[in-house]
Amino acid sequence: MTRKGSRPAAGSEAIDPDVDLHVPAQRAEPQGRVLAAVAAGGAAGASARYGISLLWPAAPGAFPWATLWINTSGCALIGVLMVLISEGGRTAPHPLLRPFAGVGVLGGFTTFSTYALDFSRLLDAGEARSALAYAGLTVVAALGAVWAAASATRLAVRGRGPDRVVR
């Protein structure tokens, strides 16, 4: 829904939050600064993930709660971030916010490969039931978190003004 004189926020048509070439501004984004922002954010996100995995290690055969929590919270945060960036602001967000916080920090914090390795390790430990529960629970928790966080952020953003319905 577009009011006269206001266009949908740049990037609201995007599917892929890392980079979506259907969005002209992202197709043309300056590669040097963007890559530096992604690298810096990735270092921060991966450090946080590594720190949590050291503080909250899973014993062999035990349920990998740390990875589950990392992925679920990262998915909730990307829901908040992307709604704020693509639907929220009266002023355009800084062009490096998505590369730094979304692609870098949250992309570096969450991990698909560790999730898959956790599953494989549970299988190797003879914990097939645990492995399947972990695989399914992570998907449900991650998708539930991104949906709930995006919905809540939309409600909050819409409460601030009448013109915030952008799909």
């Binding site: 892929d16 939050p17 890392d18 990735g42 996100g45 991966a46 993930r49 590594y50 992925n71 990262g74 998915c75 945060l77 990307i78 829901g79 992307m82 979304g102 692609v103 949250l106 992309g107 570096g108 914090f109 969450t110 991990t111 698909f112 490969s113 560790t114 999730y115 992570t138 991650a142 998708l143 978190a145 991104v146 995006a150």
Partner: peptide
């Protein structure tokens, strides 16, 4: 691999 892969992008 941890930073190359992502769950947040996938879920969003």
């Amino acid at each position: 691999c941890g930073a190359l892969s992502t769950y947040s992008t996938f879920s969003y």
